[in-house]
């Protein structure tokens, strides 16, 4: 410990008794150690949480997989765990997740990227100062409110364009989810672009490039890994989003690739079972842990990928 003062000679004419000084130093030392230990425990709680998540999901899914072979879980094309003729094909739920996430990303990625480029390279200072908090507020709206908005505002609006659109559908849920993800995509992308050093831009301007050319051909490629990380974190958000889908996309499992249909996602299914009155330990109940495990693995994959990309762009300059 460099923090102790024992090595400094006393200035006072009567030196304090050494043993007293050492005794005090000793208790100080122990106290410091205890505090450090507790702080370490607090930090380690994140590791415990991760372990607890993995332990709960795996051990509860274990009960499920003892009765349902993994092959059926992955390749069956029906998801009817609550019927007497039970089928457990996670593919059905994944199709809902995939379609809704795709719609969301088709909205969030172009808009988020354009907003990021605009805010980082084009917008005047005042626009940026006003727009950024606004976007942040957009990201702070509770998802249940987005769900209400999708079901009772966007769907009726879309039904004016597509009269055959059912009341519950993946399209409106996905679109609203896309709007929700815009702030995540735009803020991380913008951070990446602003991390691009100024002299790259100056070099480009010196060659006679315009703002647009500089943004598109110099800044964007230089920030590419950060932008990719933003997209990937956006994907992980979309896959894990629950309430918008539970409210606006219906809860009927439906193997479909058509966003105009209602379908349950992995997350919406978990909510549906949790709202019901199945007893803990029944096979129907254990399905939610298996579904959660699938969800966790998918988002974990994207999170790690995004994390690595982000680390990469931080080290680039």
């Amino acid at each position: 410990m460099t923090s102790t003062v024992a090595g400094i000679p006393a200035i006072a004419t009567v030196p304090p008794i050494v043993s007293h000084r050492l005794a005090r130093r000793h208790t100080r030392h122990i106290k410091e150690r205890i505090i450090e230990f507790f702080l370490f425990l607090a930090a380690a709680s994140s590791v415990f949480t991760t372990f607890a998540i993995v332990y709960i999901l795996v051990s509860e899914s274990w009960v499920f997989f003892q009765q349902v072979p993994l092959r059926d879980f992955l390749f069956d094309t029906q998801w009817t765990p609550l019927f007497s003729d039970a089928h457990y094909g996670i593919m059905v739920l994944l199709s809902g997740t995939l379609v809704s996430s795709s719609v969301a990303l088709l909205v969030a990625i172009p808009l988020g990227t354009i907003i990021a480029i605009y805010l980082s390279e084009f917008a005047p200072f005042t626009v940026r100062e006003v727009a950024k908090p606004f976007l942040e507020l957009l990201g702070g709206v509770p998802t249940i409110i987005y769900g209400y908005f999708a079901l009772l505002f966007v769907t009726p609006l879309l039904q004016k364009i597509f009269p055959e659109l059912p009341g519950f559908n993946l399209l409106s849920a996905g679109m609203v989810m896309g709007i929700m993800i815009i702030p995540y995509v735009s803020s991380i992308s913008e951070d990446a672009m602003r991390a691009v050093p100024m002299n790259l831009r100056e070099g480009s301007y010196a060659m006679g490039a315009t703002r647009f050319q500089t943004a598109l051909r110099v800044v964007t490629p230089a920030a590419l890994s950060g932008i990719a990380a933003a997209y990937i974190l956006g994907i992980s958000r979309a896959v894990g989003e629950t309430m918008i889908l539970a409210v606006a996309a219906g809860m009927q499992p439906n193997l479909t690739w058509n966003p105009m249909e209602p379908a349950a996602t992995v997350t919406a299914y978990i909510v549906q079972v949790a709202l019901g009155d199945l007893p803990h330990g029944s096979i129907g109940y254990q399905t939610i842990f298996a579904a959660g495990l699938a969800l966790m693995l998918i988002t974990l994959f994207f999170n790690i990928l995004g994390h690595l990309l982000r680390k990469y762009y931080r080290q680039a300059y």
Binding site: I288, T299, I304, G306
Partner: peptide, 12 residues
């Protein structure tokens, strides 16, 4: 990593 775990997994 925990910051990116979907909230419903925390529920489970």
């Amino acid at each position: 990593n925990l910051a990116g775990v979907p909230s419903i997994v925390y529920g489970l």
